[in-house]
Nucleic acid binder design. Structure first.
Length: 413
RNA sequence: GCCGGGGUGGGGUAGCGGUUAUCCUGUAGCCCUGUGGAGGCUAUGAUUCGAGUUCGAUUCUCGAUCCCGGCCCCA
């Protein structure tokens, strides 16, 4: 009986990895140009890091374990908390804003479905130490650019929690949290019931329900009509103005609420088509987590991209490399080695290690889709020239090694 | 945790109570010992696991497991 791979995990074959690395490279390029620097945190952390952030209930979805020293640990389910922990531990004295990014695997014990795995990759960004519309807009614009290079036309929804929080101010924070969760789930009935239950003032109910239904171009002015000139609306308006300057298209959506207390103002989500139920490819916002982990009162803004979900719809094929297969005979096996070594400075080179016949080596070159074959037999050794064969056209010519190198490095294809 | 649909060689499939378990493809080798892609031949290799029904199970029943899709959740 063979051993199966664990549920919800995947093996990535060379073809898969070529595509994944290609996307990864594109994303790295973008964040690099925006001045973000990579960090890596441990694959596992203290369980408490995540229960502090997300509550005890998350343990049900974690790959947690007790190590041999009796410590409660877990494979990381996300990277915002680890990066914040890292900041508190060793980055508090660095010049701000800190612009960090990460690309790592995460683990959640959940039922797999389309776009959802137990091991998955997140490409994320955290902008630490700056808050306000400028930071909010930069982060959103960056996310938008990243999806752009992935060839994804995302549907960007932007909301501003500060506005809802303003409305809910009179309520206790626990009640606020519950309401935010209901709003986020778009559970209108549950929301109604709960407002009734906590005896929310009629005026507040009306404002809340009206507010979360606002979308589209006039949402801001309607919100202002509804709530008056509160500073949160002005801040949100600034974010939108900046997004316009960045050339980012968006939909205003006060219905994005996020049920967690540490989100402070701006929140956004990006959805993509063709992904079934798990269509969200990006989510983020501004938040305050650093105090929770024992650091100062430092604001942050960030987002995570669902790398695997993007891969599902990523249709850019990487350019193939100009692989060359050296064809030898029994007598030229050894002379071929320095040739291979030289060519390996430029392109992927295959040298027979199956003790194959001349013909079989050529056949192999064909089967792996090699672009060129370099024939090195007695004839070539006698002539001092190599036979350079284009496997696509079938044409071949006698060339020196230097001429061959020029062919490999000169042409674009 | 819940609901539906599925698991037959590496990949794609046929069979649906008794078959040497079909075919395609892949891989390796040969026909063809300096020229690949075609063709032929040979080799390779599978009924997800466990219980039950039956004289007999790949086929029927139940359970488990994994995959696919959905619910819940989504930090």
């Amino acid at each position: 009986m063979t051993i199966q791979r664990p549920r919800g995990t995947r093996d990535f074959l060379p073809q898969d990895m070529a595509r994944r690395r290609h996307l990864e490279d594109q994303l790295r390029k973008v964040v690099g140009r925006w001045g973000y620097q990579e960090v890596v945190t441990p694959t596992f952390e203290d369980l408490e890091l995540f229960t502090m952030k997300s509550g005890e209930a998350v343990v049900g979805e974690l790959y947690n374990f007790t190590d041999k020293g009796g410590r409660e640990m877990t494979l990381r389910p996300e990277l915002t908390a680890p990066v914040m922990r890292m900041f508190v531990n060793e980055m508090q004295a660095l010049p701000r804003p800190l612009k960090l990014f990460y690309f790592e695997n995460c683990f959640r014990y959940e039922r797999p479905q389309k776009g959802r795995f137990r091991e998955f990759w997140q490409f994320g960004v955290e902008l630490i130490g700056s808050e306000g519309p400028d930071a909010d807009a930069e982060v959103i614009a960056l996310a938008n650019t990243m999806l752009g290079v992935a060839g994804i036309q995302g549907d960007l929804h932007v909301g501003y929690l500060g506005i809802i929080r303003h409305v809910l101010q009179p309520l206790e924070s626990e009640q606020q949290g519950k309401i935010m969760r209901l709003v986020d789930k778009k559970d209108d009935k549950g929301l109604d019931d709960f407002l009734e239950e906590v005896n929310a003032p009629i005026d507040m109910r009306m404002k809340l329900l009206r507010l979360i239904s606002l979308t589209g171009g006039e949402a801001i002015s309607k919100a202002r009509d509804l709530l008056g000139p509160i500073p949160e609306i002005d801040a949100f308006q600034q974010v939108l103005t900046l997004l316009d300057a960045y050339g980012v298209g968006y939909t205003i959506d006060f219905g994005i609420a996020r049920g967690l207390d540490y989100y402070t103002g701006m929140v956004f989500e990006i959805y993509a088509k063709g992904l079934g139920a798990q269509k969200q490819v990006c989510g983020g916002g501004s938040y305050k987590l650093i105090q929770l982990f024992g650091g100062g009162d430092v604001p942050s803004t960030g987002f995570g991209l669902g790398f695997d979900r993007i891969m599902e719809i990523y249709d850019i094929e990487p350019v193939l490399q100009k692989t060359i297969v050296i064809i030898t005979t029994e007598s030229t096996r050894i002379t071929a080695i320095p040739v291979a070594t030289k060519l390996r400075e430029y392109v992927p080179v295959y040298l027979d290690i199956m003790n194959r016949t001349f013909k079989a080596q050529l056949s192999y070159a064909n089967n792996i889709g090699a672009r060129y074959a370099l024939i090195l037999g007695d004839r070539e050794v006698a002539q001092g020239l190599f036979t350079f064969k284009d496997m696509e056209s079938g044409t071949q010519e006698s060339l020196t090694l230097n001429e061959i190198i020029l062919r490999l490095t000169g042409e674009s294809n």
